[in-house]
Nucleic acid binder design. Sequence first.
DNA 1: CTATAGATAATCT
DNA 2: GATTATCTATAGG
Length: 178
Amino acid sequence: MNIDLTKDAVSTAKKLIGCRLYTIASDGTRVGGIITETEAYNQDDAASHSYKGKTPRTEVMFGPAGHIYVYFTYGMHWCMNIVVGEEGRGEAVLIRALLPDSGLDIIRKRRNNKQDHELTNGPAKVCQALSVTGADNGAELNKGRFVLLSPKHALVFEATERIGITKDRHRLWRFVAK
DNA sequence: CTATAGATAATCT
DNA sequence: GATTATCTATAGG
């Protein structure tokens, strides 16, 4: 992994498109694939959990880059971010979608045998497929069960408005591979 | 294919 | 008490 995660959230969110993200299953299988959709959040952004400063929930966001920030939402879903930027700035990149390329059997099982195009095309689906929960909050990439690898090939992407937010909609901080 | 309702609990006001 | 960085099932075109 040679991506520099200590740059700002917007540029890092773009660089993460095409990277490969996996978690290691209990049998050693790598489960995950190529990141195809990300969103950037930082402390100046009213849509960000870090906007109002450090709280018990957002503590990890204000820690060092390269750790995982996991949050629970809508009463039933987990979503995962990669903490980026300089420590203390409260920046992170939400992993919204993957193109699975490893551990497909495990992913299908965890995702209740959904159609292939619906396995990991949403942030809570990614967490379910990679078995990420609140227990993983604060974990460090490439140390424990999380693996992040550089892209094999650069991907073309576009910038759009972020999904599911009501504040600061105008920022084009969602990045989607074409 | 699009549109919409309902589920359901942590977090913050 | 309101909001929420969502997903699924279902109804309709």
